[in-house]
Write a protein that binds this DNA or RNA. Structure first.
Lengths: 208, 208
DNA sequence: GTCTATATGCGGATAGAC
DNA sequence: GTCTATCCGCATATAGAC
């Protein structure tokens, strides 16, 4: 249930991991933030890895759910919405990609799963672009669709990390809509003229 | 001098940081790898932060040197070479971008410098693309040149991290030439027909 | 379920002898 | 310059009382 102690712990950990990064958040700090003793925290989760694993599992499930619903995408505005939702999920669990190298070396099992997840993302993105090409929304050869898929997954995976390196954005929350617009610009050269209207609308909205 | 103990320490640390990641390498492990006592290591560098700072400084200098030499780039093959050299430097100091979130939160001073470095990269990339546009190598409006520059810096900064998420590359070293080719595909839709020959050559080389 | 108290180890950093 | 020995603090994890 939503109000259970387990759930409170997971929500608090998610917030702390996102705010300070996985390596900086110790079990003591988690317990303190919850107003709870370290011993009590240990009663609910034996190890920190278990907490991280539970959160990672939710992240996986949310992303995979989004992958399942990409089949119906056959227009640029659908694609924008899909990217928007994706950036929302990645932002909600931003600690995952933010500290991926650390996560991978500290918890190899999760590193494996992250690779597998990336592989699924690539497959989904590729069939997405093949669909868009078939629908005439983009004009791209099979090979170009493959490269577009790679660029798209690369961007959704790493954009939030990169954004923190750009001066002047300190602290401010990421706008998923803006990130989605940026990802869309990658494919803009391939968008057929009939589908260009939505891109122009987005451009005026985000560059204006 | 090259053989000094200081230099040996820095080289060993660079190798260890690159191989295992900044958070995973303790001062004890560094000393052990050097066949030296922790006390002796402390004699040469008072803190781990000092070691990291020295290495980061070298990274900065190498990248800034590359930025200085982009003025003469007026053809696609020059650009490919410039990207190649850039990926070599970033690969040589790959621990920097690999654990950027950790580095930033552990050593805020270096986080600041990383942001400043990114800002310089963006400026250099933008003037690079403006030059390429003026030379007729690419066809892009001022606004498109700005976006191309952002994509290019994003890619050079984050590509190596992302690559580790792609299954099947485990352990293998990154090919800077391949990474440069990938970065070039970002601009391929904007390349004018007269300059396309080199891109086709690269495509046959890396996708064949 | 929650607490206090504690074991154990590691990481960064030092002191002081050689 | 290099060593041994050590301090301190923190992090994970646990035991056992309430």
């Amino acid at each position: 249930m939503a109000g259970s102690t387990r759930e409170r712990i997971l929500q608090t950990c998610l917030a702390l991991f996102n705010a300070h990064g996985l390596p900086a958040v110790s079990t003591h700090k988690i317990a303190a933030e919850l107003g709870m003793s370290p011993g009590n925290l240990h009663y609910h989760f034996k190890t920190k890895e278990q907490i991280v694993t539970w959160l990672f599992r939710r992240f996986e499930q949310k992303l995979e759910a989004l992958n399942s619903s990409t089949a119906g995408i056959a227009a640029v505005d659908d694609l924008w919405l899909a990217l928007h939702l994706r950036f929302e999920v990645i932002g909600e669990y931003r600690f995952v990609y933010r500290d991926m190298a650390f996560l991978s070396s500290e918890y190899p099992a999760l590193g494996q799963r992250a690779q597998a997840l990336t592989a699924l993302e690539l497959v989904a993105a590729q069939s997405l672009f093949e669909g868009l090409a078939a629908a005439g929304v983009v004009q791209a050869s099979a090979e170009q669709a493959r490269i577009l898929a790679l660029q798209m997954v690369f961007t959704t995976t790493c954009w939030l990390s990169f954004e923190r390196l750009i001066p002047g954005r300190d602290g401010r929350d990421t706008d998923p809509g803006l990130a989605a617009f940026y990802a869309l610009t990658l494919i803009s050269p391939y968008v057929s003229s009939e589908s260009r209207a939505y891109l122009d609308y987005l451009k005026s909205k985000y560059l204006g």
